[in-house]
Amino acid sequence: MKKPLDEEQLRVQAKALFDDSVEQLDAATLSRLNQDRQKALQEIQIAGPAVQWARWVPAGGLAAAAVVAVVVWQGAPVEHSAPAAGSATDFEILLSEDSLDMLEDLEFYSWMDAANLDSGSDVG
């Protein structure tokens, strides 16, 4: 008659059988396990920089929003008014009849300009 199995005997025998079955895993299974391990390690590489980068997203967003707000608030009136004023002035000059006369008397104006210079130098 067999003796009853005691706890230690059960533990040792069960562990030995389990270890034996682990050792007998085939190459295809070991290869799959290796691939799965590499995938898992890639997760840690991806998670690291992404988490660090994500930490700065709120601060970066706030800074960008502040820069945009300042540019819109200060830059917008200058950009819209200056070209409008300049183009209107050019338009008036082109339409005025005096400007056409001035083009006809270019020599006179160049002489007067030279005379002014001379008189300016005399004064100086």
Binding site: V22, T29, L30, R32, L33, D36, K39, A40, E43, I44
Partner: peptide, 30 residues
């Protein structure tokens, strides 16, 4: 390897056990 046999004894299917071990490895790493 031990984890695979562990899961395999529990679910009695090697492919399912491989998937379970893979998930566990990824979650631990992540």
């Amino acid at each position: 390897r031990r984890a695979l046999r562990f899961a395999e004894i529990a679910v009695r299917d090697r492919d399912e056990a491989l998937d379970l071990v893979q998930d566990a490895m990824i979650k631990l790493a992540r």
